[in-house]
Write a protein that binds this DNA or RNA. Structure first.
Lengths: 251, 251
DNA sequence: AGTCTTTGTGTCATTTTTACACTATCCAAA
DNA sequence: TTTGGATAGTGTAAAAATGACACAAAGACT
């Protein structure tokens, strides 16, 4: 039997961690916050990794994900959704990962299950500072990543897919845009997430018919071309829609 | 620090378990395999629970789910898909649950994370026998369940939702039907999963247009009404479809 | 005044969806 | 052998959604 059993308390649980795929949108493409583990941990294996940490025994999984997010970016109350659990028995076992593991207080030999979340952040709400707690975090375009440490690349793929499916069903994309945005920005966002071109006029028609945007009587300023009018997401109108059983945006 | 750390081995991991929502279809409604924990464990809290168990440190999550399924039903190579991870810190803590927990070798005070899976089983492939290993397992119509032990009811809801979304994207329903089935059976299956009525003629037209069914030149026998012709799912034709980027059944 | 860049808009042909009702076939019971 | 009961199987027309496609308008900059 197990005499090494942990009691419930506020200690870190050495067997379960949370990793976050934090998506942003730079108005051109979808980006992810990745952290640079530095040279020490990267003698073999990629330097870049998703932010994550072990969970405490007195918090639930959602709380743990929120905490990781808060610790890294200082933002609270962010759109967050679970992607799933990952964990092959021997995945964290390379000698070269030991230093890194110590830094997040994990035990190199432990068998760790990771619960992955994705979150949607307005990129303006977090600009990494060299002097901040997470001095080595950086927004990186999703499509420029081809590898990540541990199984984080696999997690990223799963998160992208989940986001893609989810946005067909709920208008969560607004979490990635400023409060006031243009239809073109929304258009580019959907193209980035769905990873395919969408006809401009058909996209605008479809979105407008849903009637979940408020057209602010306000225009872009300072752009070197015809200014676009600005819109706002209208939560109330969206609630009306869902209460009528609507759950398909038809993308 | 943690001196109670487990080394990787073939021991049970006291912190992570797997629960399975095993769906079946009795040709009328969607059912789930639930087990009766008996009176001992049910002094307070529902007797019925989902099958599950702790994972071993030398198996991955999918393997653990397959093992739980095999241990309960003896069936292997079944459709299986992860629903997600669940786990509030203090959820397993009632005195009355202790006996039950011991029976699956969990530690009553441990903080357990559960990874939930759902699986699809041809109901004919598993008929619970009173004498079998899982003598208290039973197919129960999904809609007749209003509570389950622990957080299993929440897990069941999540699994139903996941199944509902998934079947709009992939024709996984065939895993719930006999090899040879009628269009009416398929129709009732979709209505059960989507939990809404579907027009008969429109359903048949939609399915037939997909061209992923083979019409066997064979009819039902022994039914007290006009016999239906039998169909088979055609994997090859479905593969052709997906390779053309098809991923929306339009339900 | 002219150029550059992005916005914003309409139509038409095709496809998809929805709503809807009656005949055909088999079994069983009279 | 006739009849009743039950489910299978089928078509159409109207409405809605989709997909393809091109050009004028607005402002910034030179």
């Amino acid at each position: 039997m197990h005499n090494n059993l942990k009691k419930i308390g506020s200690e870190l649980n050495p067997n379960v961690s949370v990793d976050c795929v934090i998506f942003g949108f730079d108005l051109e493409k979808l980006t992810v916050l990745v952290i640079d583990r530095g040279e020490i941990s990267a003698e073999n294996g990629p330097r870049l990794a998703l932010p994550g940490n072990l969970i405490y025994d007195n918090e639930n999984l959602d709380q743990a994900a929120n905490r990781v997010l808060d610790e890294l970016t200082g933002i609270k109350d962010i759109y967050l959704e679970q992607v799933g659990a990952f964990g092959d028995p021997f995945r964290i076992h390379k000698e070269s990962d030991r230093e890194w593991l110590k830094s997040i207080r994990a035990q190199p030999d432990a068998r760790v299950i990771t619960v992955a979340y994705f979150s949607l952040v307005k990129i303006e709400d977090y600009q990494p500072h060299p002097s901040s707690f997470a001095k080595n975090a950086e927004w990186t375009p999703v499509n420029e990543l081809s590898e990540l440490a541990f199984d984080h690349f696999e997690i990223l793929q799963a998160a992208k897919e989940k986001l893609k499916q989810k946005i067909k069903i709920q208008p969560i994309g607004f979490n990635l845009l400023p409060e006031k945005f243009t239809l073109s920005q929304l258009h580019r966002l959907y193209e980035s997430i769905l990873d395919k071109p969408l006809d401009k006029r058909n996209f605008r028609r479809k979105i407008q018919k849903l009637n979940i945007l408020s057209n602010l009587k306000e225009k872009q300023r300072g752009v070197p071309h015809k200014p676009s009018s600005l819109y706002e997401f209208n939560e109330e109108k969206y609630q009306e829609l869902t209460q009528m059983g609507f759950d398909n945006f038809g993308f």
